[in-house]
Design a protein around this nucleic acid. Structure first.
Lengths: 246, 246
DNA sequence: TCAAGTCTTGCACGGCGTTCAAGTGGTGTG
DNA sequence: CACACCACTTGAACGCCGTGCAAGACTTGA
């Protein structure tokens, strides 16, 4: 009785799934791939926090135990979900004329990709699987760094610096939708500052948000210039920047 | 909704004072201050994830309901905990001769403080209350930026860029203790890369960790130089040395 | 037809944040 | 002194979460 078609009427999107291909058995006809796909959809739609085993199961019209049978853990599910998105993502093309421009563009590709898939990227960051998601893009960045003359430990340090800057700006970009009491928001805190060391003009400016994309581009430009300057003599910096020791 | 069921600071001070004088009733004799203190100790010791209402209650020898009576929510407890640490923290002194050096040092103060209280800082980051924890240090940074000639929107952008870079490097510094399967760690992933665009030398270098502190100092140096260069013509940061001494 | 393997289920455990009605004991007031 | 009031504490419960176990249902090969 309770076995044949106990589709809970809550979600009908699951009923239209690919199971209709072959035998409409009493089994749900689920694949691990299906489960991962549904989980990925949930995360992309509602964020990683909304990915709960019970919710995923009910969305698929199944019990939680079925989920566990197909993909083991929740952690493993998250990893599989990140891998699925990584496989779906193609490497973006790098544009730019000078090496510095190309390096910056490869870095901005990572930024744009992270923004386009913010929920999965944030989830990957929480479990420490960022590299798993972004490896192809990071390889492109490393290639551009090598073209710019950095190799070995220097290239690694440049990668790390750029990647971590991007990570920080992503944190800033996601900070907006965090649930902080509105009287403790940065703008409110800065509005209450009264310090003789800082001007009222700057204090007032702290309230408004900034254009993070432009700011990141400018910051990365400066970082790249600095990194290339310490590496070789062909740092075509725009201004008077020089490395004292050579 | 802000101060309905919770003991806000107005009634809180009166209650704590009368109880501090004639304390230790037959009841557990708890203060909101005590609860926050214990919670702060737990977070500093075992991390924000270990802060559970039941655990905190049992550590104090009371029931969870008592916790809820003193400090309302868990979210409010976290905020209060961050505020408590912020109040306990003094502003560090900024050293350096040139404006660029002083700006960088003020920034590194934030970094060092975040490392010294990594658990609370990470928790504050998760709830979006970073500014609440670091406001005095950020004010010092803003003051140094003004001394370096940046004001208004420019100073704000400089603050944001520096702060977000620090946030990214903190993410990197904390990444080490995340529970990722060891075959999906960045080093393992890079070890499996075989791409003709990158040299084996650089590829091998990606496996080893970097000195984040030195890397951050170098990165901030470059960012500060870039920021000051775009601001005015008097950005003579030529004395800044960032020679890799190894 | 029957055994083995592949799914799927119901039920349960422990832990989490949170709420609610019911106390318990000091304290000021009549 | 009695009594109401108020600050504080408790036990029990609700609904959520991740997870494991034994058993059932269906498919498949012999």
């Amino acid at each position: 009785m309770s076995t044949t078609s106990t589709r809970s009427s809550s979600t009908d999107s699951a009923a239209t799934r690919s199971r209709a291909e072959r035998s409409r058995t009493v089994h749900a006809g689920l694949t691990a791939h299906d489960v991962v796909d549904a989980a990925l959809a949930i995360v992309e739609r509602d964020g990683g926090r909304a990915l709960t085993m019970r919710g995923l199961a009910s969305e698929l019209g199944v019990t939680t135990t079925t989920i566990y049978w197909h993909v083991g853990n929740r952690d493993e599910l998250v990893i599989a979900l990140i891998e699925a998105l990584a496989a779906r993502l193609g490497t973006a093309e790098v544009v730019g004329e000078t090496p510095a421009e190309r390096v910056t563009d490869a870095a901005m590709n990572i930024w744009r990709n992270a923004l386009a898939h913010r929920n999965v990227t944030a989830l990957a960051g929480q479990v420490g699987a960022t590299t798993l998601l972004e490896l192809p893009l990071e390889i492109s960045l490393l290639a551009e760094l090598e073209s710019a003359g950095l190799r070995g430990a220097r290239a690694r340090d440049a990668m790390r610096a750029i990647l971590l800057c991007i990570a920080g700006f992503l944190v800033g970009a996601w900070r907006s939708d965090e649930t902080v009491p509105e009287d403790l928001t940065p703008a409110a805190l800065w509005a209450g500052v009264d310090d003789e060391r800082v001007s009222a003009e700057s204090l007032a400016a702290m309230g408004e948000p900034a254009d993070l994309e432009a700011l990141l581009a400018a910051t990365l430009g400066a970082v790249v210039v600095g990194l290339l300057a310490t590496a070789s003599t062909k740092a075509t910096a725009s201004t008077k920047r020089e490395s004292p020791d050579e």
